[in-house]
């Protein structure tokens, strides 16, 4: 018994054109994890508070736990699996490792993506901007100090690069 029609959505996922058949009610996180085997995106609070399920849509962060997959039709989605390029870690991932900005790692995928959009909007953010932007990404291990240090370091590197150019 299925009186509700399925639908096909097409979107760019981590740089590759992707198409998938879904039920209209399906959430982006489930389509990523269960249909496409991209399990780097984590489910935690399920109510848009914790940030573990953060992915970027057209460069901006959203909670994939509370977003219809149908809404991705025609959009560009970036998950943690698409952040490293050609086997090279993204500078954000490297900075998290260098600064020890992760412990259990459950929030890290969401943190890295949130930081990616933060640094795109604010290339050299001050600490207040970093704290404000990451206010919606919860980490229960690090106490945030190392994460903020990592992001401030990245901001300074970007600022130096901007000056050089």
């Amino acid at each position: 018994m299925n009186e509700f029609p399925m639908m096909t959505i097409a979107f760019e996922l981590n740089g590759k054109q992707t198409s998938v058949d879904i039920e209209p009610r399906e959430l982006l996180i489930d389509v990523l994890r269960d249909h496409l085997d991209l399990t780097g995106t984590k489910r935690s609070c399920d109510v848009e508070v914790c940030g573990a399920c953060t992915v970027l849509v057209d460069g901006l962060p959203i909670s994939s736990c509370t977003t219809l997959a149908a809404d991705m039709d025609g959009r560009k989605v970036l998950t943690i699996e698409g952040v490293a390029k050609d086997g090279q870690l993204d500078p954000i991932q490297q900075a998290f490792i260098t600064h020890g900005a992760l412990q259990c790692g459950f929030c890290t995928a969401g943190m890295v993506l949130a930081v990616k959009s933060l640094l795109a909007l604010h290339p050299a953010p001050d600490e207040e901007t970093v704290r404000h932007y990451l206010h919606g990404n919860v980490c229960r291990c690090t106490g945030y100090v190392k994460i903020i240090e990592a992001v401030m370091d990245l901001g300074q590197m970007q600022a130096t690069q901007l000056e050089r150019n």
């Binding site: 508070v49 940030g51 901006l60 959203i62 909670s63 949130a114 959009s117 206010h135 919606g136």
Partner: peptide
């Protein structure tokens, strides 16, 4: 607007 909930809620 910049202080509504968190960045993901503000974006969507």
């Amino acid at each position: 607007s910049e202080h509504v909930a968190n960045i993901r809620v503000r974006v969507a």
